[in-house]
């Protein structure tokens, strides 16, 4: 279990307690698998032919299948999105820390290199901005979490959050506009809070 991630979870009180508990269960599995995927990624060549996310899917599915709580698909999707956000943010933090020589020796940088992650700082900026957005309207932040960090479409986001597709689309337009304004043209930070 990655303690930084779990600490982050503890502090994210905008998600229901049950979802946070599930997400905390999912994090170590998804985290370990992300690393394994990264390692395998370096060896795989035949682009598009090999499902490099197998292990990750495997673990997630085991949880999904075995834990009674995950029979509710909305809860599972919601918890996975939260878990994914914390994993990715944590990765980015560890890597930037490593670049600054501040430890995090347990992360092998080269494991992660080939993952199609955006620039670490940009991802962290989105995350920080999202925390500010959550203070204004948590629902908008949840939509971004599902769409951006978990990669859900409108329908999955709607299921995860118990909204209609239509509200998801509208929330996304608003949240996206707010984030773009907040992050500035280059994804950097600018202070223009409402």
């Amino acid at each position: 279990m990655n303690t930084a991630a779990s600490a982050a979870l503890e502090s994210d009180l905008t998600a229901p307690a049950e979802v946070r508990r599930m997400a905390a269960e999912l994090i170590p599995l998804l985290y370990a698998d992300l690393r394994r995927v990264a390692r395998n990624e370096r060896r795989r060549v035949d682009a598009g032919e090999t499902l490099q996310t197998t292990a990750l899917i495997h673990e997630a599915w085991l949880k999904l299948r075995d834990a009674a709580a995950f029979h509710d698909r909305g809860h599972f999707l919601r918890a996975s999105a939260l878990a994914m956000r914390h994993i990715l943010v944590n990765h980015a933090r560890d890597r930037t820390a490593a670049k600054r020589g501040a430890g995090a020796a347990h992360i092998r940088l080269d494991d992660i290199m080939e993952l199609a992650l955006p620039n670490d700082q940009a991802l962290l900026d989105v995350n920080d901005a999202l925390e500010r957005l959550a203070a204004l309207n948590p629902r908008l932040a949840h939509v971004v979490e599902c769409r951006y960090f978990a990669g859900y479409g409108d329908d999955e986001t709607a299921i995860a959050l118990g909204l209609t597709d239509r509200s998801v689309r509208r929330d996304w337009v608003k949240a996206r506009a707010w984030l773009r304004r907040e992050l500035g043209p280059d994804g950097g930070t600018s202070a223009s809070s409402p």
Binding site: A47, M84, P118, A122, G151, R180
Partner: peptide, 24 residues
């Protein structure tokens, strides 16, 4: 805010992590 509606955002319009293959 309206100025930010529409247009492209390379950062936000793609999920943070995808299964894109690389290194062929």
């Amino acid at each position: 805010l309206l100025a930010q509606v529409g247009g492209e955002s390379p950062l936000l319009d793609r999920p943070a992590f995808t299964t894109t293959a690389t290194g062929a």
